[in-house]
Write a protein that binds this DNA or RNA. Structure first.
Lengths: 349, 349
DNA sequence: CTGAAAGCGCTAACAA
DNA sequence: TTGTTAGCGCTTTCAG
């Protein structure tokens, strides 16, 4: 008996530890559940009276909307999944922040995951994110494992690729050409009078974009009639300490390198510090250029030449593409980049 | 007629643009939906035969699990919501990355949002995140608007606060004492022989933690019998350029400051560069210390003294707390910090 | 070990 | 403008 009545009492608040439902709100407001739903989602299309009553009930009950149920019921699932190779990286952070801002303004959540530049992990994460039925899946780069592409074939979720451009995009690409970045830096060095060039890149086996910047740099140097740039590969992720080491390595070789490009500002910073520590003049003895245009490289002494990628713009545009089918139907959007010449690569006298 | 048959044909693949359902899988495998569900979630508890058939059907159909439906049906909603003040910040990025890693290993997704240090935005975001019925809500800091706290009262979602410790925590706090950080830096300067101290902090009106570091620094200096440190407030977010300006400001005043602490390594970096640009000896003329222990401050010339917060550990522990009720029932977990003395604050001769 | 029935909380579609 | 009905795709009972 006691048990029975407990069950009955429970029928209403069964999930006593759970959340208040919209039906509870409607009951308290004395209206149909559907009316409460409408009052919430399209307040303009219900009577002020209804709106008020529902509003009051919501406040009284501390109701929090349940988008999980809403998503199932057919409303668009207001979530976007994004995979970045690393969150601990100013480039992608800026993109994520801009993307989040863009989405938040439309009430859409950001489900993030980081692959750590691991293709296998990326495909696992893509599956996990898709299982939330996001409005769109955003991946970094354009080279994904066959598994990911196969996965996408089974679902209707739009795929957006960012931070790179594919030669023949199968879906929307929002980014810029890393190869062109490399070429631009080589041209910059050449026009400033440097003839013995080098490129130091971190994590190039896994990071296609860094590899492309390197390839563009080398190709352009050759095209300009310079000798083949020396390439130093750092088999780890970019860190300032690795940049110092790379600089030490470059300084060791002969013939002497006059200008070095780095796959990442973090490395370029390290190179500058190594030069400072050894009393090597920058750019007098060694000119430097990075990539990323981190806040800090504009302030060092001397300031460091860098390439500014459109990090935030990428995030913003990806966010817009989520809602704009027309935009999504474009194959590729090249946002370009800016080479910012600074003291570290001032023209040779 | 044509229309009618189209509807019938559509009955099966109604959402032709949609996803394959578990029922489709079960049908193809010739088993009940429930069996397919079990084969997926508890492969160990079904016959190998069933497992195989379901597996085959899944592959054939390209089925992707739908956690939205699963969540609604009662399975725990495998998602965690987290709000950070900024994603474009190495501290929080490291925490997010560690948290994501911890959650991913258990198949739980990370829904992130950034408040931009805006309390009003934080409460809006908290609502938005709660509407996904996450397993837990993670907020940065311990000072939230009344609205947020009121919101939490209405739901059963556990709240975890990170990166700070409240004097009397109402929920699990995982972090460290920023006041103690400030005190430690002041003591460090004092014991290295510096007597005229200063503190420069960015965004201190909005960032309680920076404010606490400042307060601890000042209080400890006074306790040690030093004169009241000069405090420079930067009414913007920390940027290297702001650090240069702050250093310029400090260098201007009299009596001359001997050692300056900064609320953030980014500012300390700027200060170092300003000194380099002006030919001011560090630490000879001005000693420096930052906060955050960014990769870069260990490599500058001279290297910069800093305080290493347990960024990644916070993320890891928060991740564990999500799954560990016992852990969650603890009120506060103080992870401490490390002061790393470097050349920029070497003892005065 | 497997299956059938009954919802989870919400919203689209239709009716009043 | 508001209400009623019928699910969304899955999982939790509870039976076989």
């Amino acid at each position: 008996m006691a048990r029975h009545s407990a069950q009955i009492a429970g029928a209403k608040g069964r999930r006593s530890a759970g959340h208040v439902t919209l039906a509870d709100v409607a009951r308290l407001a004395g209206v149909a559940t559907m009316s409460a739903s409408r009052a919430l989602r399209m307040p303009g299309e219900v009577s002020p009276e209804l709106r008020r009553r529902v509003q009051r009930a919501i406040e009284q009950l501390g109701y929090v909307r349940n988008r999980v149920a809403g998503g199932l019921a057919g409303a668009a699932n207001d979530m976007v999944g994004v995979i970045v190779p690393s969150m601990h990286n100013a480039f992608f952070s800026a993109t994520l922040e801009a993307l989040a801002r863009e989405l938040e303004s439309r009430g859409v959540g950001l489900l993030v995951a980081n692959s750590g530049y691991d293709a296998r992990k990326e495909s696992d994460l893509a599956y996990a994110l898709l299982s939330w039925r996001p409005r769109a899946l955003v991946l970094t780069g354009v080279d994904h494992s066959a598994k990911v592409l196969h996965l996408m074939r089974g679902v209707s979720t739009p795929l957006i690729e960012m931070w790179d451009l594919s030669p023949r995009p199968a879906t929307l690409n929002i980014g810029f050409s890393h190869r062109e970045v490399g070429k631009a830096v080589a041209r910059h060095f050449a026009s400033a009078g440097y003839r013995k060039l080098a490129f130091a890149g971190a994590n190039m086996q896994l990071d296609r974009r860094a590899r492309q910047r390197c390839a563009g740099f080398v190709a352009e140097a050759l095209r300009l009639g310079l000798q083949r740039p020396r390439v130093v590969e750092i088999e780890q992720r970019a860190e300032v300490g690795r940049g110092r080491e790379a600089a030490a390595e470059l300084l060791r070789g002969t013939p002497a390198v006059q200008a070095a490009a780095f796959s990442n500002d973090v490395l370029a910073l390290g190179a500058l510090f190594e030069c400072q520590a050894r009393g090597i003049a920058v750019p007098g003895r060694l000119a430097l250029a990075g990539f990323g245009d981190l806040d800090v490289v504009a302030q060092t002494v001397p300031s460091i030449t860098s390439v500014a990628p459109p990090s935030a713009e990428i995030g913003r545009l990806v966010g817009q593409a989520v809602f704009d089918k027309q935009l999504r139907d474009r194959r590729a959007i090249d946002l370009g980049f800016h080479l910012i010449a600074r003291a570290s690569s001032a023209p040779r006298r």
